[in-house]
Simulated assay, not measured.
Amino acid sequence: MFSFIISFLPTSYFIPGWLTLDANPLDSLLQGLVGACGISVLCSLLRVHLLLEESWSEKHDKNTSSERKTSHQTRPKTGLAEMLHFFFVTGILAIVGSRVASLVVLEFSLRAVSGSVTAGPESRKFLQQLLVQSQFSLGCALTCSLCFLHEGSSQRWLCLLLAAGLSWFLARQATRLLHHVIALYKLHSSQRYCGICISLLTSGSSVLPMLCRAMIITFSVAGLAAVSIINQHFLSATEALRFWTPLTICYTLLVVYMQEEQHRLPSSQAVLNAVMVRLGGLMVLMLTVGRWADVLHILMCFLGEASCLIPTKDLLDAAASQEEEDYTHYVKRERQHRPRAHEKENKR
Rank of each mutant, 00 (worst) to 15 (best):
G97N: 05
G304V: 11
S114E: 08
R335Y: 13
N231Y: 06
L265R: 06
L45K: 08
D22W: 11
T312K: 08
S154T: 14
R68D: 04
A293E: 01
R99F: 06
D27L: 10
V289T: 13
P209S: 07
A341C: 13
Q129L: 13
S189M: 08
V277K: 02
L161H: 06
S205W: 02
R335D: 11
I298K: 12
A164R: 12
F86H: 13
A214Y: 07
A274F: 01
S206F: 13
H150L: 07
L309K: 05
T218V: 05
E67M: 05
N24V: 01
R68C: 03
S28E: 15
F87C: 01
E239K: 09
R335A: 15
V221E: 02
S153K: 14
M283Y: 06
E305H: 14
L200G: 00
L285I: 02
I229F: 02
H49S: 02
E82K: 10
F14R: 02
V104C: 12
Q73W: 11
C308Q: 06
R242T: 11
G280N: 00
L279C: 02
G32V: 06
T328M: 03
N273R: 07
M1E: 06
V275R: 01
A119V: 10
P16R: 04
L50M: 07
C37R: 08
F14L: 00
E345L: 13
E58M: 12
Q269P: 04
K69N: 14
F148K: 04
M215D: 11
C250D: 14
V105D: 11
N346W: 15
C144G: 09
R213I: 15
V104W: 04
S167E: 00
C250K: 14
L316A: 03
S3I: 06
A240T: 05
V221K: 01
Y327T: 07
T175I: 01
R242S: 10
S12G: 12
T245E: 11
E122I: 05
T70G: 08
G290T: 09
Y257W: 15
E67S: 07
C140I: 02
E151Y: 12
A222S: 15
L253T: 05
Q155G: 10
E122T: 08
G165I: 07
L103E: 09
A101D: 08
Q31H: 02
P76G: 03
